[in-house]
Design a protein around this nucleic acid. Structure first.
Lengths: 205, 205, 205, 205
DNA sequence: GATGAATGAGACTTCATTCAT
DNA sequence: CATGAATGAAGTCTCATTCAT
């Protein structure tokens, strides 16, 4: 029970930290602000977390995990690689659509947050690119697309998506991020030579 | 003479600032460090620039201008839109290859540098995406590629390139950025349905 | 308890600040000095006060309040306007006699402390002059003195007193400020045409 | 000739300094601002004056000398002590009326300008009070007023005048400082027991 | 003589972190 | 467990003064 209460507190702090980091960026966010936004005191924050850096890191982990879960859950509902890709793309767009705070935190603030997070961020990028690559490889193995440098392709896909989302965060156009799907999908598909697959074929999977 | 001396000093400070910002990021870079790295005193820096922000902004401007010049010079040597795209891509890769410092500054540090630079950064992204888009539009007009949402396509191209470069900055793999060209080129071309143009045809332009 | 501790600290800081400001003047007093003189750290000072300006302002307020209290307490013991004036004059002289630091702070340093305090200082002067005027008006109403421009008279009284005190602060002559009373009293009284009231008459009130 | 040109430059700098000090106070006025306001460069200022303090001091001297001259010239036109006092009072009011900048500099900024000017300021006050006292003594000698503590009286006169002028500088009421004369004069006169002298008698002197 | 670049000490302020209560 | 007071290092910026040109 005690442990439970403690975990709730931690969650509250992390939630508050996400908002504050998203609003101000890592350096300009103060622990004081996180404390008051989470309804605790500065001492309280330091009771649950050893440092501001660790809060940021845990937030990053949590964000990545959630995102990965969303993506994997979405992909699990399909068998065909292309359908999986489609589902993942939509899942990502919808998640950020719903959680603009998360988008800003993850897309805009993290890269420049400080040297101490950069290797972690590189890992994260590699992880997501790795997921993409893995499925591109599968598609190649299954003969669905022609062989290609899946490493660079995965990076490019990730980058294209990243940029579209970042642009949306910064400029807030179009109103809903999901609206970019219609243009993004064929672009990505064609880029790996998978444009000819009809949607109908995917629906059956 | 005075003016010249002053301009030389300013350049020296900007050069030093680029290195320091690239090493530490905006927030973690101290004016003291910029001063000593440029062989001046803190007061000297503030004699030439009114604030740290302004140094950063001028550096951003200078970087963007240089990059745009490189790109435009490279494109000017070709007529065919695809050849132009090719040349621009190579120019970008080679520039960052030679100036890893510039790459880190521009790719990694700027986005999260602080709220005060975000609108400028959004403009910058829009500017580069705009250049790409303009040429994609031309290609569509000339019947070289099928009509498509060039806005999103341009964003995606920019993002793909951005990500590949960022990955290289963070992980330093492959050793030379230019090596990614071989995989990146067909990917981008195919994404807009321009894969069938043979290189030989372009060489003649 | 916490609140109490905090208040004690604030008092200590204000007391130290009074001494430092009195010694050095606003601009030449450093927060560092205030901190060490109050047995705290610089951060401690800034925990309790948001800025050096605010410390100064609070000190000004506190000083004005104390002075006004002394004056009003002294006047409350008498009914006759002239006796009130007498009592107030003595109260002021004695207060500054006991607290030369206060005198220096209030008389010498504040006027030129900076543009940001000037309107407040003007209010303060107006406030004290207002008290004097109010009682001069009462004296006129009661037929004790002939009608006159009480606004200018009040200002002149305040100025005369101010100058005598300032001179004492700067030159420390005579040794005790109260010694000026004997000369000041008839001067002020005569200036408003009240010289003929014998002290014996006042003592009875 | 050369010397002349130099003196003109010095005057220009002093004039500019007066304006700047009057606007900003001693500490907030920068040598740069004085330089640009006087149409010179910082180096130029330092060629003519060894330090900012010295500029201030010379300005103080110049101001005091001018004021004293005005006063003495005004008094020289009369023989009767009371008439002299009258003339001096008017001269002071009119001078500051015409030169509000001078008034602000002399009345408001100097006292708190810094420890380094305080002894000089004390001398200055003593000097003016001394002039007043000297004439009060003469008036006593000539049997025009009853004996009294002329030292305190002179201080009080000076203070009363100082305060009225300061109030005018800070609040700018009444519009013209000279308007305070009508109320100030009888007040001062009565304070030393000289109220019964009719103006007509003075006019003849 | 004059200019403006350069210096460097020092100011205020912020804030992550620690700790007594 | 929680609070809020306290610390102290670090940061940006100012400016009187000096000095090379």
């Amino acid at each position: 029970m005690q442990q439970n209460r403690s975990r709730v507190r931690q969650q509250r702090i992390l939630d508050a930290a996400l908002r504050v980091f998203s609003r101000k960026g890592f350096r300009d966010a103060s622990v004081d602000e996180i404390a008051s936004e989470s309804g605790t005191s500065k001492g309280g924050v330091y009771f649950h977390f050893p440092s501001k850096d660790v809060i940021y890191l845990q937030l990053l982990d949590r964000t990545v995990a959630r995102l990965r879960n969303k993506i994997e859950a979405a992909m699990a509902e399909h068998d065909h690689p292309i359908a999986k890709a489609d589902a993942a793309l939509l899942a990502v767009l919808r998640t950020f659509d719903k959680h603009a705070t998360l988008a800003r935190f993850f897309m805009v603030e993290t890269l420049g947050a400080g040297r101490q997070f950069q290797s972690r961020m590189a890992e994260t990028r590699a992880e997501f690119a790795g997921i993409i690559r893995q499925h591109l490889d599968a598609a190649v193995d299954q003969g669905i697309i022609e062989p290609l440098d899946t490493e660079v392709a995965a990076q490019a896909w990730f980058g294209a998506l990243y940029e579209v989302i970042t642009g949306w965060v910064l400029v807030r156009k179009p109103e809903r991020l999901e609206e970019t799907y219609a243009a993004l999908r064929p672009l990505l598909m064609r880029s790996v030579g998978a444009e000819e697959i009809p949607l109908s074929a995917l629906m059956e999977s």
